[in-house]
Design a binder for these strands. Structure first.
Length: 827
DNA sequence: AGCACGCCGACT
DNA sequence: GTCGGCGTGCTC
């Protein structure tokens, strides 16, 4: 009798532990398990988790008793070996665990845990499928409960080994993971015209058309019907719904459609316009490139021969997108996959639509706030390298994690955007930098695009690490806006200020409105007043959980903490000295809105910031209203700077440039240059040059001068000198350590100890410990330590050292309760 | 990161 | 006397 081998699997679990977990594999799955298959495993005292198999072996661990794999979810891998390499790079470089990377990479619906909610599949028809006794038991619980997590389901049904059954029920589309509907991005609906059911039969349809033809009074209806049939016809002779707007565009009148509906031939329905499926019939050829665009396109291709990564530095409105489209087209022709990265907010814009018009269903949109089932669908489609679907992925930062196997090109649009850097849950990766590494792994080319490149990127391009292509001509000959300064200091002295508005700005606003045009006011701060201040003792109200002064929101009449969400009622008297002389310092979008309305009640003023776009559809609604000229002045935070083009914006006002410039952060000037240039780019139309007015107390500030002259290179040259002088990126690499603890004493001691340990290895490269700007967040005191390192230090060694130091740090009992956050390349 | 186990204060 | 606070240590 041959001896049976026992197999074990090493599994990645979504926990911040730098260790592999070994499980024993039941015999029944020995032949089906693969590296890259998901398994459900017991983890901890009473929980289940989804893990990913990284290794199959026969070495039984000696020091502990191994648990069994509970359920094998995939008979074929869902993650490629290439992805494992990429994940390890992310984990190593950004100092997170591989489990955390997995967590960021996999769509939620891939992960089944004890707390996963399941529900009955909406398409499930009762009686259609035979169910076992156990399946029926599960089903019945869900009939009553609608949704239920797996832990409860085990309790209610008494089935101990529930995962394999759930897995089958998912596959048979009886159940699905339950997902809360996301309000902000609910599916877009449109009215569609459909053929009535009985006319789907070709004979009936022919008869119907004949009848229409016979009756001269129904000529219009016949015409409408023929239009409809032409638009709706698909290859196999069936008819699909046609958008009503499309029929109207073809000249079909509402009246004839209504008649057809009355005669029982057609009907209309509100249908969801799918974001990922696109009608093949709309595919059209990309526009031809202008001469300048064509030149840039050729240069990019030349750069790609020598460089993995190339920067396309194109001024706003130079038509970078058209160049991207042509590059994508080339990749598609040679059968390659394309990844197109965009900042989170830009994903809601016209760009998606435009690409879908060119590439139809080859375009897939991958966005954390889209439906999770759609995400799984895209994942699987990319994984199987389906040549007809989702060859082009348009996505936010997390789309670098898709299972590409044949990637030819990665485009990172608006490369300088800070939202490419993940902040909160670890891994704190930068999608642009990760994309470059991904490109190298795939031998794919990477194109970075921006009108205002990050210093790092431009530095690399200048130093021949990346290719560089400049596109300085605006498409269609539209001129860059003219930029002026409103000297706040002077106007204050002359008393010509109208509250926060200079008379210069107001005069220009009135001119703009008289000409029937629109204006955008930019103030990068929401709320009403960021600071209340007692005139007597200079006390300010602060958050009880964070070391942050509270922002007053007038509309809700609340004092809010923008860091933890703490809310309290406004106070009339100083809590310290009891005086009632509280004055407001600074201003946010809300106050701008209020005062503009107060001064000009005739203007239609709206505000676009986090507070006004939280509600369902609010963002899209505001934009449409603005587009339709139902708003004269749109006041907004940086949300309005992102990739939106409005036809009628003639004036852009930057209300407080100084606030941007004087932030205590080494990137403040860079951010200011980028933000102001971006808002400025919103001004101007086909026939008239736009105007930008920047309110500042220091109109001679060199950064503002460079903005005014549209002189990126000049800005870059000065700023890069500063960076070099003060040992900042791109010359030096930064790693931030943040320690958190509820007890300030313990934190202080811990910070000093960690600093000492770091200094033993890194010496003068260690800065701190220092109280960060916000020294308390959500009841935790914070302490910061910075590491500034020469670029040529071995990254691997640096991180090995840091690992060792952290282990040494946590071996001290009193440090165990201190939380440590490491941020590599902080933004 | 969760989460169970375990040791000290304010309540029936 | 207990219920529950969150400090500590573990997860194959």
């Amino acid at each position: 009798l041959a001896e049976r081998k026992t197999y074990f699997v090493d599994v990645i679990l979504p926990v911040p532990i730098h260790r592999a977990f070994t499980y024993r594999l039941p015999q029944e799955w020995e032949n089906d398990v693969h590296v890259g298959s998901r398994v459900v495993v017991p983890f901890g005292k009473s929980k289940f988790q989804t893990g990913l198999v990284t290794k199959i072996h026969e070495q039984a661990p000696a020091e502990y008793t191994v648990k069994y794999v509970e359920c094998l979810l995939d008979e074929t891998p869902i993650v490629t070996t290439g992805q494992f390499h990429f994940w390890s790079w992310i984990a190593g470089y950004y100092m997170s665990s591989i489990g955390e990377v997995m967590n960021a990479a996999l769509p939620t619906n891939f992960k089944i845990a004890s707390e996963t909610m399941v529900a009955i599949h909406p398409d499930f028809e009762p009686g259609e499928q035979d169910m076992t006794e156990q399946e029926t038991a599960i089903f019945e619980v869900l009939v009553i409960q609608e949704k239920c997590d797996l832990k409860q389901l085990i309790e209610r049904t008494g089935i101990t080994s529930i995962h394999p059954i759930i897995k089958k029920m998912f596959q048979r589309r009886i159940l699905l993971p339950f997902e809360e509907l996301n309000d902000r991005f609910t599916p877009k609906t449109a009215t569609y015209v459909l053929l009535n059911e009985e006319l789907q039969d070709p004979e009936k349809l022919a008869e119907c058309l004949y009848n229409l033809e016979q009756n001269k009074r129904q000529a219009k209806q016949l015409e409408a019907m023929l239009q409809f049939l032409a638009l709706g016809q698909v290859e196999n002779g069936d008819f699909q719904p046609v958008p009503k707007t499309q029929l109207v565009a073809q000249g079909v009148s509402q009246a004839s459609m209504a008649s057809l509906e009355r005669n029982g031939i057609i009907h209309t329905e509100k249908l969801i316009v799918s974001r990922i499926n696109f009608d093949k019939q709309h595919v059209r050829e990309p526009e031809n490139l202008s001469e300048a665009q064509h030149k840039a396109y050729d240069e990019i291709n030349i750069c790609f021969q020598t460089f993995n990564t190339t920067l396309l530095h194109g001024v706003t409105g130079s038509g970078k997108t058209e160049i991207y489209v042509h590059l994508i087209q080339e990749q598609i022709k040679s059968g390659k996959q394309v990844l197109f990265l965009l900042p989170e907010i830009a994903l809601t814009t016209q760009l998606i639509q435009r690409l879908q018009e060119y590439f139809g269903e080859l375009v897939g949109v991958y966005h954390s706030r889209f439906n999770q089932n759609e995400r799984v669908e895209i994942w699987n489609s990319v994984l199987e390298n389906n040549p007809h679907k989702f060859r082009i992925i348009l996505g936010a930062r997390s789309s670098v994690f898709l299972p590409f196997s044949d990637l030819g090109l990665i485009i990172v649009d608006e490369e300088h955007e800070t939202s490419y850097k993940q902040h909160d849950p670890s891994p704190r990766y930068h999608a642009r930098d990760a994309a470059i590494v991904l490109g190298i792994m795939h031998k794919a080319k990477v194109l970075l695009g921006s009108a205002t490149p990050s210093l790092e990127t431009y530095f690399n391009a200048k130093n021949k690490k990346y290719g560089l292509v400049e596109l300085s001509e605006r498409y269609g000959g539209i001129r860059l806006p003219e930029i002026f300064f409103a000297d706040i200091k002077k106007e204050r002295a002359q008393q010509t200020m109208h509250s926060h508005f200079s008379s210069f700005l107001m005069e220009e606003l009135m001119k703009t409105i008289e000409e029937g045009q629109q204006a955008i006011f930019f103030q990068n701060r929401r709320g009403y007043t960021p600071l209340w201040n007692c005139e007597v003792c200079s006390w300010t109200p602060k958050c009880t959980n964070c070391d942050v002064s509270l922002t007053y929101h007038k509309h809700s009449n609340q004092l809010k903490c923008h860091y933890c969400g703490f809310v309290t009622a406004p106070i009339g008297t100083c809590a310290q000295c009891g005086s009632n002389r509280l004055r407001m310092i600074g201003f946010g979008t809300e106050k701008i809105e209020d005062e503009l309305i107060l001064q000009h009640p005739e203007l239609r003023v709206k505000r676009l910031d986090l507070d006004t776009t939280r509600a369902k559809h609010a963002y899209a609604k505001l934009l449409t209203e603005f587009e339709e000229k139902k708003i004269d002045v749109l006041i907004g935070t940086q949300m309005i700077t992102k990739g939106l083009d409005f036809e009628h914006v003639q004036l852009v006002g930057v209300l407080d440039a100084d606030m941007l410039l004087h932030r205590p952060d080494f990137r403040a000037f860079e951010r200011s240059y980028q933000l102001i240039s971006q808002v400025a780019g919103r001004a101007g139309r086909k026939h008239k040059r736009g105007k930008v007015i920047i309110q500042t107390a220091d109109p001679d500030h060199w950064v503002l001068r460079r903005v005014m002259e549209h002189d990126y290179l000049g800005f870059y040259n000065s700023e890069i000198m500063e960076r070099k002088h003060f040992l900042y990126p791109p010359f030096y690499k930064l790693i931030d350590f943040t320690l958190k603890h509820k007890d300030e004493k313990i934190l202080q001691q811990g910070s000093l100890n960690l600093t000492r340990l770091l200094k033993e290895v890194f010496h003068e490269r260690v800065m701190g410990p220092e109280k960060p700007l916000i020294s308390r967040l959500q009841q935790y005191f914070l302490m910061g330590i910075k590491l500034k390192m020469e670029k040529d230090l071995s990254d691997k060694k640096v991180k090995e050292h840091i690992r060792g130091i952290i282990d040494a740090f946590y071996s001290v009992p009193s440090h165990k309760s201190i939380r440590l956050v490491i941020n590599v390349d902080p933004y």
